[in-house]
């Protein structure tokens, strides 16, 4: 079997297992509503499904487990760990704060004192060092296996696009389960799903660059953790501010919600393509 056929087979098996486990959220929706234990087990299976899919695929295709990218590779790469921590926080700060400031509510950001901001940053630093390990369940699969298998087939740009779409679609059961449970409308669920798909496709470019630059999935784990937690941390500071509940920032919030992440995608796509060019010797 050629390398291309082998990669297609591996990728197909990996995606089949990952998506089959993600569909458990829809299939077992009723038991999850009635039993907290069932909800816990299914949620954990869903969260770890990319890692489970990676390990099963590697075992089934006899690839071995030698290149899981589980070394930290701190030497020479510590600055990229810091970038993984800081960039999502900066992006979400820009996307959430700028609309508020431009709409004239800048003076109402009383929760954003130096003490509050510093304490949030230190808490996030501590948590990202230890609590983020749970996200290995996703990154071992997406960046540690799927991207490596996709790149020989689709190229770097294709991998970022297709990989991001796969990552976003894998989250679809979360978005649709609320509607299926009777809460929210279908249009809201679909809007949430597509919004997440766009954000994750853009953010996935940064994660792929981090993984290739450091040869480790741990910076991607830290960045993914910060992507999830930055929004919660910023919302907690907004809750302490005295912005009126009926404050309307209009379309600005919609636009600014995507612009920073889109810029990140463009910059790191350029860096990825340049990295590829540097590694490929010219004839």
């Amino acid at each position: 079997m050629t390398n291309k056929k082998e990669n297609i087979k591996r990728l197909g098996l990996y995606l089949l297992i990952a998506f089959a486990l993600s569909l458990l959220l829809i299939v077992f929706r009723k038991p999850m509503e009635t039993s907290a234990r069932a909800s816990f087990i299914i949620t954990q299976l869903f969260s770890f499904s990319p890692a489970i899919a990676c390990l099963i695929t590697r075992a089934a295709t006899k690839e071995g487990f030698g290149d899981l990218k589980l070394h930290f590779n701190f030497r020479g790469n510590f600055r990229w760990y810091l970038l993984a921590f800081a960039l999502p926080l900066v992006c979400f700060s820009v996307s959430m704060l700028l609309p508020v400031i431009i709409s004239g509510y800048g003076s109402r950001l009383s929760g954003f004192t130096a003490k509050n901001v510093l304490s949030v940053i230190f808490i996030l630093m501590g948590q990202s060092a230890v609590v983020s390990a749970g996200l290995l369940g996703e990154e071992l699969g997406w960046r540690g296996y799927m991207n490596c298998t996709m790149e020989p087939l689709f190229g770097t740009f294709g991998t970022c696009l297709a990989g991001g779409i796969m990552w976003g679609l894998w989250h679809f059961p979360i978005d649709i389960s609320n509607y299926l449970g009777g809460g929210g409308s279908l249009s809201f669920s679909m809007e949430s799903a597509f919004s997440r798909l766009a954000m994750l496709t853009c953010f996935g470019v940064f994660l792929m660059w981090l993984t290739k630059k450091t040869g480790s999935i741990f910076p991607a784990v830290v960045a993914h953790f910060m992507f999830n937690q930055s929004q919660n941390a910023l919302m907690s500071l907004f809750m302490e501010s005295d912005i009126p509940e009926d404050a309307d920032v209009g379309k600005l919030a919609d636009v600014f919600g995507y612009v920073p992440m889109a810029l990140v995608a463009v910059v790191f796509m350029y860096l990825l393509l340049r990295m590829k060019k540097t590694k490929t010797p010219s004839v």
Binding site: S35, A36, R37, S39, F40, Q44
Partner: peptide, 10 residues
Amino acid sequence: EQLITAIAAD
């Protein structure tokens, strides 16, 4: 802890 919290919730 999450599993024990779920068992208690049940």
